[in-house]
Simulated assay, not measured.
Amino acid sequence: MKYSKVNHIDTIKAAFKGSNENYFKGNHIFLVVSIFLLMSLSNFANAHGMSEAEKLSIIEGGNLRYMWLGATHMLSGYDHLAFVFGIIFFLTSFRDIAKYVTAFTVGHSVTLIYATFNGIQLNYFLIDAVIALSVCYIAFANIDGFRKYLNINTPNMLVMIVVLGLIHGFGLSTRLQELPLSEDELLLNIISFNVGIELGQISALLVMLLLIAAWRNSDFFKTFSKITNYGLIMAGGLLFLMQMHGYEHAVNADELNVSEVSTPKLSTVSEMSDSATATVGDKWRDTINIVIPARDGKEYKLMVNKDDAFTFKWETSGELLFFDFHGELAGDTSGAFQSFEVGTKSESSGSLTAIFTGTHGWYWKNNTSSPVAITLKVKGDYIAANNSGK
């Protein structure tokens, strides 16, 4: 990567040995940047999060919906944006900007398309933790940290941006696979999402370039550049710790505990139901066999009183289904519900302690061209809900 000829020793001197006016202005910049970074950190932890409204609207949406979701996802993906910001920070020529941004685009596009098309999934806390370290890496390179602190030459930046782009692509793919994807139009869905990602990236890039161009003409750009890149290292490090904390304390499929949901999120969805047959098993109280028709969805519910608990396990023969495990308050007629787990899987299991009295159950969506059979097993304190035909 080509850097401007910035003497970092002079940068430090300019920050701390200038006139009183310069000192005040330098610290003013530091204050503004610090506040911005701290405000952003609350969003960093959920940089890839997709709202329940997005997940539900995409079910019936077309490829334009995937494109729009890709664009908005990139614009709210602060770790991706921070990485791009670090890439272009010291680049001044259009040729260099195009070269390095293209390297990042190629990297994340390859893994986004390949991993999603082949159903390769990684733990999103872990992949986001590595992405956080990539932000630290690019900022560390910007301050010439390899030479100054490690006494080694900076690795080939073009190669590293491609490699780190591949990692970012896995993060994007992991989130995309939370959505229901059409089997017949799978590749087109993925490409549409990726096109949206690139459109969002271009939009953000234009704003970044304008801001950096304005700052570069300032007398305090050296001070600003040092503060910003050290700030990116700090933000990336904190984000890494937050993601690892999330990984250590995340609710897993075998220990689902609704009490860990901090804020109930209510959405509106048209009511659906399911007809199923139930038999009593030795270990499980009920075993329910459900068939989800091709290109269709079904729902199965249990009535559960507040503070009562039940254990469940459902599985297909390997086919992936989009599902929403959720609950609805008893007596509520608005269609509002609270989601506990949403994803695309072939099986799920765990236990749940109800935080309100109402129906609790699953909505499954089959996007394939063939019916999919589900075996659902449940036991605990519940009353079989009304699961009449759809």
Rank of each mutant, 00 (worst) to 15 (best):
L69I: 03
I59S: 03
L166F: 14
A384N: 15
S334V: 08
K5F: 08
L188C: 00
G246V: 00
L112I: 05
S351T: 13
H245D: 08
G119W: 13
Y23P: 03
D381M: 05
A132W: 04
L41Y: 06
A294E: 07
G358P: 11
I138H: 09
L329K: 09
W68D: 00
A385L: 04
M242Y: 00
N367L: 05
H48E: 08
T359W: 00
I97P: 15
H360C: 07
D286C: 12
H8V: 07
L69R: 04
I202V: 12
K99M: 13
G107L: 02
M303W: 05
T316S: 03
S203F: 12
A336E: 02
I191N: 01
G62S: 06
L238C: 13
T287W: 02
T359H: 07
A141D: 05
W68A: 11
N20A: 13
G380S: 00
L172S: 11
M39K: 09
T263Q: 06
D308M: 04
G165T: 00
S270C: 09
A139E: 11
G145V: 10
K17R: 09
F94D: 02
V110F: 04
I127K: 06
H249D: 07
V251N: 15
L166Q: 01
G62K: 12
M74E: 01
A250I: 01
S275Q: 12
H245F: 10
G26E: 10
F90I: 01
Y23A: 09
T277Y: 01
G86K: 09
V378F: 04
I227N: 03
A336Q: 13
L266K: 00
R65A: 12
K55H: 10
M303F: 11
S42F: 13
Y363L: 10
L38N: 01
N367K: 11
H245I: 14
V378I: 14
T11R: 10
F83I: 10
S93G: 15
G327F: 10
D219V: 09
G26C: 14
K148D: 04
L266G: 08
I191Q: 01
E341W: 15
A384C: 03
I59V: 05
S42D: 03
S203M: 08
K25Y: 14
K265S: 08
L158I: 06
S134I: 12
F240P: 02
F312D: 07
I292A: 12
R295H: 08
E185R: 12
V372N: 11
I212R: 14
I12S: 06
